[in-house]
């Protein structure tokens, strides 16, 4: 039996202690904000049609208080809700925009998305502790060009995997992506091979990888690192698949059954260990990390 070689330190201190120089010093704490007029505005849950103030949904981890529908949540906020006392350290990745196809207006599009989302790209990488266990945490955001994977996203994910490998830390990736980034052509496709190869190296070195599939995880991301987890979790109701439902419907010439490709469907077909709602995510991840913190023999 292969024994995972993990250095998981349970510490009393809340502060993440990191000595590596690639990690910058920035920690943010989730504080209770007072509701702005925008947050006071009403919104309707697409699932149960119930009306809520935006702030009520926000304060419930972006989950509908009545039916449990999981709304999109920003990458950074997801991390803050997850890690001990909201402390985390972003991983530095010095990769900048590139436009290999000379795709028209692509750079402008990225710049405007950066301003709108406050993210540099569709993925956020950091190190944080969950119930005292350090982990590399990677979160994709569907708000940034549908979380599509181009060179920068692929490189950031790969560097995060390599960082976890070097530091012997467990790796947690929250996926949310429509797939490979069309605007970067073949080099986007190659990110699938690049990330999967890095993941296999991490795997062969005994690293623990927990994949958390969130809505939506499709195409080139679902067909690469998203489905390579030792443990695969999914948020309720997430769309998970290789081909999108519309493409499948066109291919087979009929409507797809209700719930097809959703988290529950994937679990039923053996591709997901457990479906975990957002409010249970922290404790579930902590449990998995705890169970891997000691060698099996």
């Amino acid at each position: 039996m292969k024994i995972p070689n993990l250095r998981l330190l349970k510490r009393k201190s809340n502060q993440v202690i990191l000595t590596d120089s690639v990690v910058s010093d920035m920690s943010v704490k989730e504080e209770k904000p007072s509701a702005t007029p925008v947050e006071e505005a009403m919104t309707q849950c697409p699932k149960c049609k119930q009306e809520y103030r935006k702030i009520d949904i926000k304060e419930n981890m972006n989950v509908c208080p009545s039916c449990g529908h999981h709304f999109v949540i920003s990458a950074e906020r997801r991390v803050r809700l997850l890690v001990d006392n909201g402390f985390y350290k972003p991983l530095k990745c010095k990769v900048a925009f590139s436009n290999p196809l000379d795709y028209p207006d692509y750079e402008e599009k990225i710049v405007s998305l950066q301003e709108k989302t406050g993210m540099d790209e569709a993925v956020f990488t950091c190190v944080g502790a969950i119930d005292g266990y350090d982990a590399v945490i990677v979160v994709m955001s569907s708000k940034f060009l549908m979380g599509s994977m181009g060179i920068v996203v692929g490189e950031k994910v790969t560097q995060a995997i390599e960082y976890a490998d070097r530091k012997k830390l467990p790796l947690i990736i929250f996926t949310a992506s429509g797939g490979a980034r069309m605007q970067e052509g073949i080099l986007s496709l190659m990110q699938m091979a690049k990330t999967s190869a890095a993941m296999e190296k991490f795997n062969l070195n005994g690293g623990l990888y927990i994949s958390v599939l969130t809505h939506p995880t499709t195409g080139g991301v679902s067909a690469s690192f998203a489905t390579l987890g030792d443990i695969t979790l999914a948020e309720p109701g997430a769309l998970i698949g290789f081909a999108g439902p519309r493409v499948i419907e066109q291919t087979i010439g009929q409507k797809l059954p209700e719930g097809f490709q959703r988290s529950e469907f994937q679990m039923e077909h053996g591709f997901v260990d457990q479906i975990v709602s957002r409010d249970k995510m922290r404790e579930t991840l902590a449990q998995i990390l705890r169970l891997h913190s000691k060698k099996g023999r």
């Binding site: 999967s196 190869a197 993941m199 998970i240 081909a243």
Partner: peptide, 18 residues
């Protein structure tokens, strides 16, 4: 296709890449 998705198209491709 429907069956391809049901039987794990994504994980089959990902596993090959890895």
């Amino acid at each position: 296709g429907l069956e391809a998705e049901t039987n794990g198209q994504s994980i089959a491709i990902a596993t090959n890449l890895a």
